[in-house]
Design a protein around this nucleic acid. Structure first.
Lengths: 138, 138
DNA sequence: GTAACTGCAAAATATTTGCATCCTT
DNA sequence: AAGGATGCAAATATTTTGCAGTTAC
């Protein structure tokens, strides 16, 4: 696991630092999306708030994580699958927000549906967010 | 038009005030989603920033407008169709963000697709955001 | 007249930037 | 050693709250 974290960083030409290892580790072990606050809470004793911002921004730029659209104001991040690379993010999976535990998951195996748009519109990217009850809470 | 604005407010048991008329008027005439900043820019000379916040919050509570999920941080609001009522918001339409002009529309005639979720998950609400080129920009 | 709404001030929160120092390579 | 990353301080931006004055009904 430690190994895997460093692999990901190396593969993305990022230097191996404490904060990156810790934050990436959180994503790998958490199986769900994390908000900035979640990360601060779990790693915040060690790192400056600003470092968390900058680390997340770096990860997004490198395609290691992606942001998840939410209707409320919150910003959440989740790991990208391997098929995402810098500048070529594949957004063809859907997101699930549990209205009970509030956890957010990427359902990587569920493809986004085809949408028939009105004349004149063309789609480049489709984001789907499903809200409901997750398998742990039901 | 003026008439229609007041109708909507009355129907929702809201008193008719300058700021509500103005802000609701912006939504009715704009045919797209508005961010807080858009509203401030168009009506901001007249109203306090706080009033805009409170007015939008009131409109959301009454089901007059709804928020649109976005992957970036921005919060956008759009008019709800008549079928939305307080506490019973119908979210069965999709949202379209133009990657060129950045305008955001509700495509009310396009129903959200059925999503086949993994075992144990149940859906309550489905949000779909399509990014692409709108008919004006193509 | 009363309850609701607004504006102003200020607090609380969230995010960004500059710069000196420290760490990774 | 050099470039990048971090921490700290501070500047900005965003959102919320309290309260007194004003407006709608």
């Amino acid at each position: 696991m430690e190994k895997s974290v460093e692999d990901v960083l190396k593969r993305n030409q990022l230097s191996i630092t404490e904060s990156r290892k810790k934050i990436l580790g959180l994503f790998l072990s958490h199986n769900g999306a994390l908000a900035h606050g979640d990360i601060e809470r779990n790693a915040g004793d060690k790192f400056d708030r600003v470092t968390v911002y900058r680390t997340l921004q770096t990860f997004v730029e490198k395609g290691i994580v992606h942001t998840i659209p939410t209707a409320d104001n919150s910003v959440r991040y989740a790991l990208c699958k391997d098929s995402c690379s810098e500048g070529h993010h594949r957004d063809h999976h859907i997101h699930f927000v549990c209205s009970n535990c509030r956890n957010t998951f990427c359902l990587d195996d569920i493809a986004t549906p085809d949408i028939r748009l009105p004349k004149g519109y063309s789609a480049e990217k489709v984001e789907v967010v499903v809200e409901g009850i997750c398998s742990d809470c039901k």
